[in-house]
Every structure is written in C-alpha cells, then in structure tokens.
C-alpha cells in the first residue's frame, strides 16, 4: 500500500497508540459492541463465485445517506427520466442491507466519522463509489481546513466518477463500470479493508479527533 503521507512520524505514533478496544465508547456501553477485528473472507471458487458476482452486479443496493452536495444528483436517478431500477439499482435506507456506498462529493471530517461508521456497518462484499472531484483530490475544497482530499485513504474505493458535479448520466455510466468490475471479480474492497485495517484506522484517527464511537462497527 502506497503511503505518501508527509508526516510519517505522527502516523507512526498514532499507530503505536492504536489499541483498538472500543476505548472511546461511553462508559458502560462497551459490551454492546463487537470487539474483534475484521477478517478476510475468502471468495468462493470457480463458477460459483462468478455466478455470485453476476448476482451482486445485477442487484446494487445504494445506501441512501447523502454525504455531500452530490446527493442531489442521486435523486434524479429514481425518477422516470433516468430510472436506475432498470439496471437493478435501488436505494436502501439502512447500511445493514445496502451494498453500494455512494460518497456524494466532499466529505468533511464530521461527515467522515459517519461515513466510516456506516461503511463498517455494511455487510460485505461492499462497494464504494466516489462521486465528484472532491472524493478524488479534494476538488474545489482541496485547501479547506475541514475537508478530506483523498477518500481512498480512509475507505477503499472501487469506482470514481469525476466531475463537479457529474450529471446523472455520468452516474449511470459509473454504476455500469462498477458492474463490469464486480463481474470481473475486481471489487474486493472489503478484504482490502480487513487486510490494511491498521493503516485505514490510523488515517481515520489522525483526522477524527473526537472518536467517541466503537472501533469495530460490524
């Protein structure tokens, strides 16, 4: 994993302190949360995995959590003009049931906290679509004090859709690209997250100062 952080010492220090035992959860509530690290789940083999991947690609359930201004571009997809249902895409209001997390544009630190929590609550295999330039390199908010620049340093991203904002057509094209990637078996963000868990957590904890939530959300 490439690590182009320019303050390695700080990251290393956080990594050293990283005990990850739900220490930041409120007193007496720790028993409610899981205390195990995520594990890498091996995919099925051969034709079964290919069939499963086909089913996954044809039934994309979006987590309906508007994380940025790009959320406004998701709504027209439901209307009769764009009609995402014909591609097997539908919104789902709870992270437990959703499979695709659409990050709608800029993610501030405050939103990032909720994004991490929602992402971890989704059941794998889960896919992330970064929508808009802000998720790629910060977009027009690249020098803001409170907006992250690169989404893939905090959660694994499968498909980026460039633009500020991308139109619904671009979104549909992005979803079709995601489908092709899933069918090819290239979307393994869930296992990537589990393998590089420490790296992702250190990055997240570097910006989210008031953690106050469990370290393990599944």
């Amino acid at each position: 994993m490439d690590n182009d952080s320019n303050n390695k010492e700080q990251l290393d220090e956080i990594r050293k302190q990283l005990t990850l035992a739900n220490n930041d959860v409120r007193e007496g509530e720790q028993a409610y949360f899981c205390d195990a690290r995520p594990v890498v789940v091996e995919p099925y083999r051969g034709i079964l995995e290919r069939f499963a991947n086909w089913a996954r690609s044809e039934s994309l359930w979006i987590l309906g959590f508007g994380t940025g201004c790009g959320a406004i571009e998701l709504r027209p997809l439901m209307t009769s003009r764009y009609d995402m249902y014909r591609f097997g895409i539908q919104p789902r209001p709870t992270p437990r049931q959703a499979g695709v997390f659409v990050i709608g544009g800029y993610a501030s630190v405050k939103t990032m906290k909720r994004i991490v929590r929602s992402y971890e609550q989704m059941q794998g295999p889960k896919f992330v679509v970064g929508l808009g330039s802000c998720t790629i390199n910060g977009g027009m908010y690249w020098d803001s004090y409170n907006t992250i620049n690169r989404l893939d340093h905090y959660i694994p991203v499968d498909v980026y859709i460039a633009g500020c904002m991308p139109r619904p057509e671009a979104l549909l094209a992005g979803f079709n690209a995601l489908k092709a990637k899933i069918r090819a078996g290239e979307c393994d963000g869930m296992n990537k997250y589990a393998q590089n868990f420490d790296w992702y957590k250190a990055n997240q904890k570097q910006i989210i100062k008031h953690w106050e939530m469990p370290d393990y959300n599944w």
Binding site: V41, P43, A52, A55, R56, E58, S59, S80, D83, Y85, R86, G88, Q90, R96, G99, Q123, G124, P125, M190, W218
Partner: peptide
C-alpha cells in the same frame, strides 16, 4: 404507471440470491 421502464421481472430472484451470497452477516 410512473412512466418508467422498471426493473426486470426476475429482479426479486437476483435480490434473494445476492442476499444469500453475502460474505458476512451479523
């Protein structure tokens, strides 16, 4: 009725298949 094309007729099958193929469950 809403002027859309709509999901494929076999979409419920795929949804059930996908849900049962998920790798983790809580």
């Amino acid at each position: 009725v809403q002027g859309r094309i709509g999901q494929p007729v076999y979409q419920p099958y795929i949804d059930i298949l996908k849900n049962n193929f998920l790798r983790t469950s809580i």
